[in-house]
């Protein structure tokens, strides 16, 4: 059952991501993306990472996608009516590359240490928190500054012009 859910969710995540490749309307794409992200959240949970799963739902599916939709709204994007999505010019090479990338990453991934009979553990928020504010304290601080920097950058860029 666990495995079934996992693989099923994985198929959903992948399918939704694949749909983004072919949908025409940005909003549809955003919705597919949300689907994919939510499926991922489930996967995280299944892989014993409840905190990340929660954050995924809140942060990604919530905040970021709203941002996307907001920008779409501002930009007022809508495709010309009923137009079929055409293959982009020079699609062959990128397609080939993507295929090759899939193959090579698969080759790499299947080199991973084999895990025969591992026990499933859930690493809870506490362990994660300890790690974050123990070993990775400096990184957290820097990440905070990074967010500040992003804020500054966005504020500057969004200003219309200097008085």
């Amino acid at each position: 059952m666990y495995k079934l859910i996992f693989y099923l969710t994985a198929v959903i995540a992948i399918g939704a991501a694949g749909a983004i490749l072919i949908v025409r309307h940005p909003v549809h794409a955003a919705l597919y993306l949300i689907a994919s992200l939510l499926a991922l959240a489930l996967l995280f949970f299944l892989l014993g990472a409840p905190l990340v799963a929660a954050l995924q739902v809140i942060l990604y599916a919530g905040a970021i996608m709203v941002l996307f939709l907001f920008v779409m709204m501002v930009m007022d994007l809508r495709p010309a009516s009923n137009e079929r999505l055409a293959l982009p010019k020079g699609w062959r090479v990128p397609t080939l590359l993507v295929a090759a990338l899939a193959v090579e990453l698969a080759v790499v991934v299947f080199q991973a240490p084999l895990s025969g009979d591992e026990i499933w553990v859930s690493v809870g928020p506490k362990a994660v928190g300890q790690s974050l504010f123990g070993t990775y304290l400096i990184a957290v601080e820097v990440a905070a500054i990074l967010l500040l920097a992003a804020l500054v950058a966005v504020l500057y860029l969004s200003r219309r012009s200097r008085p």
């Binding site: 990775y136 400096i138 990184a139 820097v142 990440a143 500054i145 990074l146 920097a149 992003a150 500054v152 950058a153 966005v154 500057y156 860029l157």
Partner: peptide, 17 residues
């Protein structure tokens, strides 16, 4: 490596602007 990633992005994000 994680710190490296943070550092790299710390460098990159200001650069976008």
């Amino acid at each position: 490596l994680l710190a490296a990633f943070v550092g790299l992005e710390m460098l990159a994000v200001p650069l976008y602007a």
